[in-house]
């Protein structure tokens, strides 16, 4: 498979001014400011093949979004090389811009007061999409994302999940070869989150579009991507298969318990590591491999009103990768 995205030692340093808190600080900063530097990327090197679906994982401020922004030409890097589809992104050549799309979970690209359909027709002009292709893609995307009834409603009236589906459709109308997704599921409830993930998966399978996706939800990446790149403090700390990452690092689950009556007996330790504990509730960390057995034992032994099982936080997984 040919290489679609390539970076070598990509670096980005932001400069900003130090400002002390309070009004005095603000006034002082008018006259004297100390320039500070924040190294957001400290040499990112990666290669992504055509048609790959890669998850970019890391806590907030790790450099995921910065990388995506450099690859889409929004930001200029401070050093290093990058090429996407043979183009240098920050030259912002229309020939490149017509071949990729970026969708950002927190930035709305559709016209807020108008139905999504109107933004679609505008995109047809912007990307100079041929009528035949446009009609075909529109049909296909509305079908695939199940948005036939939504595209005639003003965007502001849609729910977040519905809006994200329309955002995705708008970004895919010109059949991009590369798709950057920055936190596409942020703020969505679990059902919408799953749907979006399904659609992305389905689209990638159908079109062989290269997808680079950032998320700080473990489950998105776990379900969607074969390959995952973990980044923290601006450097890649893991690049490989999801299975390997999960078995190696996220080998625990979190069990949250609420007791039906005050439960003061000790001995929760035998089910797992006790993270939090008070009279009516407890949080346990337990091995992933025998989670089913542990929960059934808890339900048997203790008067529990509510029990939920959650993944370990991605931040914890990364912390673990760091500490060893």
């Amino acid at each position: 498979m040919p290489i679609s995205i390539h970076t070598k030692n990509l670096r980005k340093t932001y400069d900003y001014f130090k400002k002390e808190a309070g009004l005095t600080g603000s006034i002082k900063s008018l006259f004297w400011r100390e320039k500070l530097y924040n190294e957001a990327l400290k040499g990112i090197s990666l290669e992504i093949e055509e048609g790959e679906l890669v998850g970019f994982l890391g806590p907030n401020g790790a450099g995921k979004t910065t990388t995506l922004k450099i690859l889409s030409g929004i930001l200029y890097p401070s050093g290093g090389e990058a090429s996407v589809l043979g183009h240098i992104p920050w030259k912002r050549e229309p020939a490149y811009q017509k071949q990729f799309s970026i969708v950002m979970g927190q930035k709305n690209q559709l016209w807020w007061d108008l139905p999504a359909q109107e933004s679609f027709t505008l995109n047809r002009e912007i990307y100079e999409i041929e009528d035949k292709t446009y009609n075909y893609n529109l049909e296909e995307l509305t079908e695939l994302f199940d948005i036939k009834d939504l595209i005639d409603i003003p965007v502001r009236k849609l729910s977040m999940g519905q809006r994200m589906k329309c955002e995705l459709a708008a970004a895919l109308l010109h059949s991009p070869k590369v798709l950057f997704l920055d936190e596409p599921t942020i703020g969505l409830d679990i059902i919408s989150q799953d749907k979006i993930i399904n659609y992305i998966e389905e689209y990638n399978r159908l079109k062989k579009t290269t997808v680079l996706l950032t998320s700080h939800y473990m489950r998105d990446v776990e379900r969607l991507c074969k390959r995952v790149i973990v980044i923290n403090h601006g450097a890649i700390i893991y690049d490989g298969s999801v299975e390997n990452l999960m078995t190696t690092y996220a080998d625990h689950k979190i069990i949250r318990l609420r007791f039906s009556s005050e439960f003061t007996v000790n001995g929760l330790e035998k089910y797992g590591e006790v993270l939090e504990r008070d009279r009516l509730s407890a949080v346990l960390k337990t091995s992933k491999s025998d989670i089913a057995r542990t929960t059934s034992r808890i339900l048997n032994d203790i008067p529990v009103e509510d029990l939920s099982v959650e993944d370990v936080d991605i931040e914890d997984v990364i912390k673990k990768i760091f500490t060893g």
């Binding site: 811009q97 912007i126 990307y127």
Partner: peptide
Amino acid sequence: TGTFDIFMVRPI
């Protein structure tokens, strides 16, 4: 707010 991003990525 960073919405200027959109103007940087379109082929216009």
